[in-house]
């Protein structure tokens, strides 16, 4: 019987597996998009999506539960303050796994990209164009107002970010995310 046999073991001991998935979860939340093997990407959904659900709950207990996985107060803060609001009103499907056609050289492992299905706009110089293409069809069924607000704020943010010219991508991200969360 396969009762209670959900999940993948990934050829690791329980502690090793837990550490691996926690590290992958941190990497995904920091970078928004990571490349790993297809099996790890699929297993990672079971860790990251509950974290985003915690971020949407946004209370002290949820923060402490997220800290148990992330073990990083700065990252928990970023998850709750920046990533959580992006997914407000989204009923699941927070991540997307895209399979890559070329397996890994060396062990022929099938590779995939896992990314957060929505990105706070605008993130970087080349991303607004790409983000708009994807955001328009995705956001349309959920709520049109959010997509419109993001599109309108995009040019304004680009102007605001340039005079600041801090150069760091994090600094450029912050004004956009503040506006999108307010909108």
């Amino acid at each position: 019987m396969r009762h209670s046999n959900s999940g993948r073991k990934l050829s690791r001991t329980p502690a090793h597996r837990k550490a691996l998935l926690h590290n992958l979860a941190k990497a995904l939340l920091i970078h928004g998009k990571i490349r790993t093997t297809e099996m790890k990407a699929k297993e990672l959904r079971r860790v990251v999506e509950p974290l985003i659900t915690l971020a949407k709950r946004n209370d002290l207990h949820a923060r402490r539960q997220a800290y148990r996985v992330l073990n990083d107060h700065a990252l928990v803060k970023r998850l709750f303050d920046e990533i959580g609001p992006v997914f407000a009103g989204v009923p699941g499907g927070y991540t997307r796994v895209l399979k890559l056609a070329m397996p890994r050289k060396g062990d022929n492992a099938p590779m995939a990209i896992i990314e957060l299905s929505r990105v706070a706009e605008p993130a970087a110089d080349d991303k607004p164009a790409r983000g708009k293409q994807t955001a328009a069809p995705q956001v349309a069924p959920a709520g049109e107002t959010k997509g419109k607000a993001a599109d309108e704020s995009a040019p304004a943010d680009a102007l605001e970010a340039k005079p600041a010219s801090s150069g760091t991508p994090k600094a450029e991200k912050e004004p956009g995310q503040d506006e999108s969360s307010a909108a």
């Binding site: 895209l98 399979k99 890559l100 056609a101 070329m102 990209i113």
Partner: peptide
């Protein structure tokens, strides 16, 4: 390319 995958 392979179906259901990112074109290399």
């Amino acid at each position: 390319t392979l179906p259901h995958s990112v074109c290399p």
